[in-house]
Amino acid sequence: MFGLQMPPVNAEFWAILGTLVLLEGLLSADNALVLAVMVRHLKGELQRKALAYGIGGAVVLRILGVLLASYILEYWWLRAFGAAYLAYLAISHFVKHRSTEDEASGQAKGRGFWATVVLLNLTDLAFSVDSILAGVALIPRGMPREQGLTIVVIGGIIGLILMRIAATVFLKLLNRYPAMDNVAYALVGWIAVKLGVETLEAAHEVYPSVPTFHMAPVLFWGVMAAIAVIGTFLATRKPAMTEDAAEAKAEDVVRSFDDTVADAADGRIDGR
C-alpha cells in the first residue's frame, strides 16, 4: 500500500532499529504512565472508559503518524519542521523542572470526562509525533524512500507492542531511574541535529545559496553511543526507589491497561 521495501540488513540497519527500540520503549513507557496518571481524578468505571479511549487513540494516531512519515521523507521543508520540533522537544524537556507525571496530573486534575478524553488524545498525538519524527530522522538521507518508510513502520509497530508487552520493563526502569528520561531526550536532541544538517543539504540542492554541511555516519553514531553509555551510567548512579517498589508501581499501571482490554472484550467498558 505504501510502496514498502525491506532495506539491506546490515550494521546500520541494526543500529537504527536498536535506537528505535530504546527510544520507543522509553517514550511508550512514558506514554503509558501519563495516560494512567491523567485518569486518576475520574471516578470508578469512568477511569477505565477514558483510558480505553486513550489506548485507542494511541493506536489510531500511530497509524496516521506512519502516513505522515511518507511525506516527511519526501519533502525537505517537512524535514525542517521535524528537526525544529525534535530540537524544541529536547530543549523544553531539560528546561522544565517538573516530571512528566507531575505535569500530566496537574493538567488533567479537575477536568470532566470528555475534557480528559480530549487531553488524553492530544497527549497521544504528541507522543506519536515524537516517535515517528525520531524514526524519520534516523533514516540516512541517501536511503530510498521505500526502505526508509519500512524502518519507520517497523518502529511504529515496535512502539505499539512495547506500550503493553514491554511496558513493565521500561516503566520499572523509569520508576527506579527517572533520569533515564534525560538520556532519551538527549538522544532526541542529537537526532534533531542530524535531521537539521540533512535538511540543509536537501535545501542546498534546491537553493544553492543555503549553506550546507555534512555529518559523517561515524560521527553521528559515535555521539549516539557516547550519550547512551555516559547518560545511562550517570542516570543509574542514584536509584529513586527500590527495585521492588519500582516493579510494583509499574505493574499497577500495566494492570490498569489489562483491565481496560478485558472490559472491552466482554462489553463492560462502559461499566455495565
Rank of each mutant, 00 (worst) to 15 (best):
A202R: 10
M6G: 01
E243Y: 10
L89Y: 09
N31K: 05
T212E: 10
E103Y: 06
L20C: 13
A87N: 04
G189T: 01
R141W: 10
L23G: 05
A134C: 15
V169H: 05
A15R: 07
A265L: 13
D102R: 14
V223Q: 04
M143V: 05
A36T: 10
S70F: 08
W190Q: 07
S209M: 10
L125R: 00
T150C: 07
E101N: 04
L149W: 08
L26T: 06
D266Q: 06
D130F: 15
V253H: 06
T260D: 08
V153A: 13
T232F: 13
V261L: 15
L35R: 01
G156W: 11
E251M: 15
L64H: 03
L160W: 12
G222N: 04
R111W: 07
S128G: 13
V218N: 08
P178N: 12
W114F: 02
A192K: 06
S70V: 01
M180T: 05
A87P: 03
G159L: 12
W14N: 02
F2A: 09
I55Q: 04
V253D: 13
K109P: 01
N31R: 11
M1A: 14
F13R: 09
R176L: 11
L195D: 02
K194A: 03
L234R: 13
L219M: 13
A58F: 07
L120M: 12
R111L: 01
F170M: 05
A226N: 01
V183M: 06
I72K: 00
L86E: 08
L195C: 08
I139F: 09
E205H: 11
L125W: 10
I191W: 12
G135D: 05
K43H: 14
E205L: 15
L89E: 07
V118A: 15
V21A: 13
L122A: 06
V254C: 09
P140Y: 09
D252H: 02
G189S: 03
L33R: 09
N31M: 12
S28P: 14
V136C: 08
A216T: 07
M215H: 04
T232S: 15
Y177L: 03
E146P: 02
N121T: 02
G54P: 12
N121L: 02
Q107L: 15
Y53H: 13
V188I: 15
